[in-house]
Design a protein around this nucleic acid. Structure first.
Lengths: 215, 215
DNA sequence: AAATATAGTGCGCTAATGTTCACTTGTCAA
DNA sequence: TTGACAAGTGAACATTAGCGCACTATATTT
């Protein structure tokens, strides 16, 4: 009841959020007023007071642009108290793999990443590997992405896998035909790799996820 | 030009970042000065001018607290601090958003994911949203992917954002031209959305990451 | 009809905050 | 040594921006 906003208040709150997103800092009363074609800052102030009272904003007194959005309007609170119980599983992140070295040696380690077990129903030996190269762009795996790899998991036809061919680590689609193994890139620029007896071939694991950061 | 920062400039920049993270808005010159025990605001101003010139932040003239961070300033500074604390941060995962409902209401909650803070240098209000539709495939975002969203972070031209247009939640590239806002899909099958005054437009946040599971 | 809540106007006041200038100090390299 | 440069001081000064009052208007409720 108390938290209910009027139409105008919603508009104001909405505009403040957009302003911050666009500018990186909050607007002044006058800027808000002028955006709505208002002539006086007093009305705006009353709206802010209302929004503050209802818990959507914090406003420092006697300070300029000192509006901050309250988490309440976003997330946290509701989840925090809903007693969400879940374990997280930590997996190591592996960067560029030095040719010849075991993938999971310390020198390749770059950090850890933890993922909620609800989303992660695989075995505990998983790790994440930083992809270099664009041979899988059509599968939505870009240079620099982290692929999450589950070793000792059954690999089926057409799965995306991480494999080692003669000390070279690659991410490709897996295909087996008449006892021959093919590693298929998802980019016209590259040719499929045919694995022969002469190659030192090792199926590292199955790619079960992809994680990418925009920086 | 040399983009290299002096020690002092790094300290200042770092403090500004922390201040914004804690308060939700940037500090004034005097607040910065007093944090460092300085008696004059002039020195601070010169530091800001330098940081601006070197491209780490933007500062509006004759406006209070009008400092905004440039992307560049993330990576570099946090870099040095990383390694100290490696907590994991939990963020909620949001599934299909019922039209009209606040994104982060319980009915939309699907779980939590936790991510190592070393890989996650953004604010704590972040959440993950399940994408439906293929309008961003050329940006490597597929149907069913989880995009990780940072609300109340400065959105720049061409950033991938989550926006609400008239109760419809979409993920698109953000573009602003002459006061007009365009939401650009990354798939030839779709047309850009032009946001007009008549639309109820709300910039939910910036997409800072993508997570995909193969199941 | 009267009361109440929401919205907005105009205007002046004052505190908050950015800007500028002249001068000092310490470091580093030519 | 001299000169360039980062850093800081102190004291105005100029502009921005929050605050508050009296008054108006329009719904909705009592």
């Amino acid at each position: 009841m108390k938290d209910k906003l009027t139409e105008r208040q919603k508009e104001i709150l909405n505009h403040i959020q957009n302003f911050i997103a666009e500018n990186g800092f909050p607007p002044t009363l006058r800027e808000i007023a002028s955006h709505f074609g208002l002539a006086s800052t007093f009305g705006v102030k009353r709206h802010l007071d209302a929004l503050k009272k209802k818990g959507y904003l914090k406003v420092e007194s006697f300070a300029s642009r000192a509006i901050s959005l309250n988490k309440k309007s976003f997330s946290e609170i509701e989840f925090e108290k809903s007693g969400y119980d879940s374990k997280t599983i930590s997996i190591p992140v592996v960067g560029r793999v030095a040719a010849g070295s075991p993938i999971l040696s310390e020198e390749n380690l770059e950090g850890m990443i933890a993922i909620d077990s609800n989303f992660f129903k695989h075995n505990k030996n998983c790790f994440a590997l930083k992809v270099s190269g664009d041979s899988m762009i059509n599968a939505g795996i870009f240079d620099g992405d982290l692929v999450i790899v589950s070793p000792n998991e059954k690999v089926s036809q057409h799965d995306i896998v991480v494999a080692r061919v003669d000390d070279e680590i690659t991410v490709k689609n897996y295909e087996k035909k008449d006892d021959k193994i093919f590693l298929i890139p998802q980019n016209k620029k590259y040719e499929p790799i045919t694995v022969t007896q002469k190659n030192n071939f090792y199926l590292v694991g199955k790619v079960i996820g992809v994680l990418r950061w925009f920086n």
